[in-house]
């Protein structure tokens, strides 16, 4: 399995590159405090908006803080929120969708109608609505992104479970005395979870964009904590005098989204379409 993965990965240049980049971003997120060359919170007003140089390759921001260090700490925020939200929504979605399909009947109907309602709100509007009334802050942000995120997994796994729920091997397990718990977790989930895992990788990009969008609108991570979204929001005001503040964070963000997307597509090709 793992051997296959690397063999296929070597053949697909873009996916290989994306995989390397993903590992790099995770590495940067974990070791941000060792990798950042300067203190991302240290204000030096005399260096306000100073352009990039050798010792400060991304330049200085609107308060004279080192932009590279802030981008590195921003990577930690974005990547960790992305992974946390994907993990929570994945588990919640799998359990709700899987169980509702397994139990069936009224429960299934009810869950499907609830997901219909959530899908009736476009994109990040639901998250914007929740955060703007509940207040900003990292926990509310994660909550808002979770509320809107679990549905895609629930729908996906439901379809898969319905497909195999009445297969012979499930009956066999039932007749040989397995309980519902064992059947659901051991037999059903193990055989239906692959597409949801791929979906999780693909969703990581969307979650990171949503987090940055909310922070950009002033509804997510608030300054001084650096996040790509709130950095770009401040940079917008200084477009005329400090274009480097837009360029560098955008490119760092774009490379991550690019990598998640193409690595996700590679996984999709490998595990689902075969």
């Amino acid at each position: 399995m793992i051997g296959d993965f690397f063999k296929n990965l070597k053949r697909d240049k873009i996916a290989f590159l994306s995989f390397i980049f993903l590992l790099l971003y995770i590495f940067v997120a974990i070791f941000a405090n060792f990798l950042a060359p300067y203190d991302p919170y240290k204000v030096e007003l005399s260096k306000r908006l100073v352009a990039p140089s050798f010792s400060h390759p991304f330049g200085f921001d609107e308060l004279g803080r080192d932009e590279l260090s802030r981008v590195i700490y921003g990577t930690r925020i974005s990547v960790s929120i992305g992974i946390i939200v994907v993990l929570i929504t994945f588990i919640v979605g799998i359990l709700i969708g899987g169980l509702s399909a397994y139990v069936g009947g009224i429960l299934d109907e009810l869950v499907m109608r609830i997901t219909d309602v959530f899908l009736a709100m476009p994109g990040i509007l639901l998250a914007i609505a929740i955060v703007s009334f509940l207040g900003t802050g990292i926990f509310n942000l994660i909550f808002a992104l979770t509320v809107m995120g679990w549905i895609s997994y629930a729908r996906l796994i439901r379809g898969e479970v319905l497909k195999i729920k009445n297969s012979e091997f499930i009956y066999a397990a039932k007749f040989s005395g397995s309980g519902h718990f064992k059947i659901f977790f051991k037999h059903i989930l193990r055989n239906t979870i692959d597409p949801a895992i791929v979906q999780g990788v693909l969703n990581l990009g969307g979650v990171i964009i949503s987090e940055a969008s909310l922070s950009f609108l002033g509804l997510g991570i608030s300054p001084p904590t650096p996040s790509w979204g709130n950095m770009l929001s401040m940079a917008r005001i200084h477009l005329f005098d400090a274009p480097h503040l837009i360029i560098f964070p955008s490119i760092v963000l774009a490379i991550l989204i690019f990598s998640v997307h193409f690595f996700g597509e590679f996984l999709e090709e490998m595990f689902i379409k075969r």
Partner: peptide, 15 residues
């Protein structure tokens, strides 16, 4: 189109 979200592309275009 996939890699650059609105809030990154907009300011870059303005720039």
């Amino acid at each position: 189109g996939i890699s650059f979200p609105h809030f990154a592309l907009g300011p870059i275009l303005i720039l």
